[in-house]
C-alpha cells in the first residue's frame, strides 16, 4: 500500500513555484524593514507568492541579535559626520554595514514544506552568491562556522536571516559589488581576526554595473531554489 508523503516532490511537469522579483532601488533600511514585515504577514497568509527583494541601502550600520555594542567602532560623532545610521535589524548575526554599491537581497520565502532547515537555507543563499561570483571568474567559497561568502582576499558577502512563525524568511544577504570598503572600518564586521572585507569590483579590477549583478543574482536564485521568476518591475 502506498502512502503519499507530505514532502513528496511535485510530480514531473508540475509548475514550479513562482518567485516574484522586486527591484526597489535605494531604500532606507527602516523602510525596507517595514516592507518586509508586511510581506512576511502576507506571505504567511498566502496572499502573495515567494518574493525576492533586490535593493541598495543608504549608509547604515545594523545590529543583529548576536551583536556586541563594542563592534560598532565609530562613535555617534563620527557616524554623523559620515552620514551613517545605526539600527537594530531583527535578524541573526552580528554588526554589519550596508551602503551604496552593495546589492542587498531579502528573500521572503515560505520554506514549507520541503526546505524547513535553516542551515540548508543559509548554505543555499551562499550557493546563489558563489554562482554569481563564479560568473565573473571569481573563486569563492564557504568557510565552516563562518556564514557568508569568502574569497582569498576576504569576505565578499554577508548573510543574516530571520525565520518568522510558519517558516517565512526575511532579511538575507548583502553582496559587496562596488561598495566603498572604507566604511567597514566603522565596525567590526562579523569576521575574524586578520581577515578583510572585499568587493566584486575589487576582485575583478573593473567597474561592474550593480543592475547586471542583480539580474544574475535573480536568475541564480531561481535556479538554486527551483522557482520560476516573475518580474514585478522596478529599477535598482
Amino acid at each position: 500500500m502506498a502512502h503519499p508523503t507530505v514532502s513528496e516532490p511535485s510530480p514531473a511537469g508540475a509548475a514550479r513555484r513562482v518567485l516574484e522579483i522586486r527591484r526597489l532601488g535605494m531604500l532606507p533600511f527602516a523602510q525596507a524593514h517595514l516592507l518586509q514585515e508586511d510581506l512576511v504577514t502576507r506571505r504567511r497568509a498566502g496572499e502573495i507568492p515567494d518574493q525576492l527583494l533586490l535593493l541598495q541601502h543608504p549608509h547604515v550600520i545594523t545590529l543583529g541579535s548576536g551583536s556586541h555594542a563594542e563592534h560598532v567602532l565609530a562613535d555617534p560623532g563620527q557616524r554623523n559626520a559620515l552620514g551613517i545610521d545605526l539600527l537594530e535589524a531583527g535578524r541573526g548575526g552580528d554588526v554589519t554595514y550596508h551602503g551604496p554599491g552593495q546589492l542587498v537581497g531579502y528573500p521572503i520565502l515560505d520554506l514549507k514544506p520541503d526546505r524547513r532547515d535553516v542551515h540548508r537555507y543559509l548554505r543555499d543563499l551562499e550557493e546563489v552568491l558563489i554562482r554569481v561570483l563564479d560568473g565573473y571568474g571569481i573563486e569563492s567559497r564557504r568557510v565552516e562556522g563562518m556564514t557568508g561568502v569568502w574569497t582569498d582576499s576576504g569576505k565578499v558577502a554577508a548573510i543574516g536571516i530571520r525565520v518568522s512563525s510558519g517558516w517565512i524568511t526575511s532579511h538575507g544577504f548583502a553582496l559587496n559589488v562596488g561598495t566603498d570598503l572604507s566604511f567597514f572600518e566603522t565596525i567590526v564586521p562579523c569576521g575574524i581576526a586578520g581577515s578583510t572585507v572585499t568587493s566584486l569590483e575589487h576582485l575583478v579590477g573593473r567597474p561592474v554595473p550593480i543592475t547586471e549583478v542583480a539580474a544574475r543574482t535573480a536568475s541564480a536564485f531561481a535556479n538554486v531554489f527551483d522557482r520560476s521568476v516573475s518580474e514585478v518591475g522596478g529599477e535598482l
Partner: peptide
C-alpha cells in the same frame, strides 16, 4: 531563538 546567523520565532 537565535543560532549563529539565524533569528527564528517560535510559535
Amino acid at each position: 531563538i537565535s543560532t549563529d546567523k539565524v533569528d527564528a520565532e517560535i510559535p
